[in-house]
Design a protein around this nucleic acid. Structure first.
Lengths: 208, 208
DNA sequence: ATATAATGTGAATATAAATTCATATGAATG
DNA sequence: CATTCATATGAATTTATATTCACATTATAT
């Protein structure tokens, strides 16, 4: 958590610091990101930085928190609170759509998220041992789908939740090529998502 | 590439250096791994290290190369050279089985592979721009499966190859929990793999 | 207006490696 | 045995940055 000093700052300055931090953390890996660069670009003294934050990790935690919150804003809450109206695959589709919307609007946050998600050690450093939130999310969704009889009762929930989590990496790979958003996707994001769902629903075996 | 000096070394010493490097790179992220620790543990002088390698990156590249070669040894070559005898899903199954065998026998190399695969920037630093070898591998496999009519002709190869690649992350997640091999998996690896294949073949939608 | 607290500052210090280099030792050659 | 070449060594240097600190400035309260 940033120190109180940080929250007492004039909004403009606070925003400059956040913006500079997002810039630096999206452009470089955590251990390569430089406080000096952040201070310079936010136009504050290096010493001031330590008035606002405990240390580099403190700032990074804060930025990750902002990122997570921002992402949550993109999820259609009506859909999640009224789950019952939607079936499992509709919910999954909505989740994927939110991911893409979020990525489009917040490329730098997407990059930070990638850097974070792609580095388990960093996750441990920042979040401690409870770093496995994401497959848990899918487990709950799957339990719900099973209860409603929409899913093949044969599936192993623990395994499939990890698999769905792995497919998230694919989605990010698709959206985000070579450090920027893949422009091809933006034109036919629906199509891409629908193909992905088709894969998840039906697999790839030929049927007759 | 290591310098010639390195290959001129007595085998014992060369092995000590490799072993020390594998230890260090499997325990710490690339930018955190220390030449000093490697030199100490291999019982060579720090200066000697630079007789053998250009720099840290040079050593790491070499270790990654060893890892990749070792992994290739685990793939059943008979199966790949006589592809025609096996169907797509049998081949995929074999690939997953090799992954698990490799992981069991070479936990440290698995860890290095994870660190590498989980860090796209590092991949760019080490392999340059052609870092996307792996989804390419699946693309070829998929083309083969389609030609033989084993796969749903509806699927989009480009997309599905990225999806299969994402599922690799899942497999690693399953095998490798908290820095070591998940013992639960070893007892029923076949079962796990078969469930994973079931997911890929049939998806998770309930059918009647 | 003065005192007190809060914030700002950047040069100095600390830390942690990677890398170099002058020099020593050993091996091969003729 | 002397000369040349290859390898070994670790203290000294370099690089890169995070973090501290003594002091300066500005804001708030009395």
């Amino acid at each position: 958590m940033p120190k109180e000093t940080f929250f007492n700052l004039a909004e403009d300055k606070r925003d400059r610091v956040i913006d500079a931090a997002i810039n630096e953390f999206s452009a470089r890996l955590y251990h390569k990101a430089r406080i000096t660069a952040i201070a310079d670009s936010a136009d504050i003294a290096k010493g001031s930085f330590y008035q606002y934050f405990e240390d580099k990790k403190d700032l990074f935690k804060y930025i990750i928190e902002l990122t997570v919150n921002k992402k949550l804003e993109y999820i259609n809450h009506d859909m999640l609170t009224n789950k019952d109206k939607y079936n499992f695959f509709q919910l999954l589709r909505e989740i994927y759509l939110s991911s893409i919307r979020f990525a489009k609007d917040n490329p730098r946050l997407l990059s930070i998220g990638n850097i974070f998600i792609n580095n388990k050690d960093l996750q441990r450093e920042i979040w401690g041992e409870q770093a496995d939130k994401s497959s848990n999310f899918y487990r709950q969704l799957l339990e719900y789908g099973l209860r409603k009889g929409e899913l093949d009762p044969e599936i192993d929930i623990d395994l499939v939740s990890v698999l769905l989590n792995g497919l998230n990496f694919s989605l990010v790979d698709i959206i985000y090529k070579d450090g920027k958003i893949n422009p091809d996707i933006l034109d036919n994001e629906m199509e891409t998502i629908d193909k992905m769902l088709y894969f998840i629903e039906n697999g790839i075996k030929k049927r007759d």
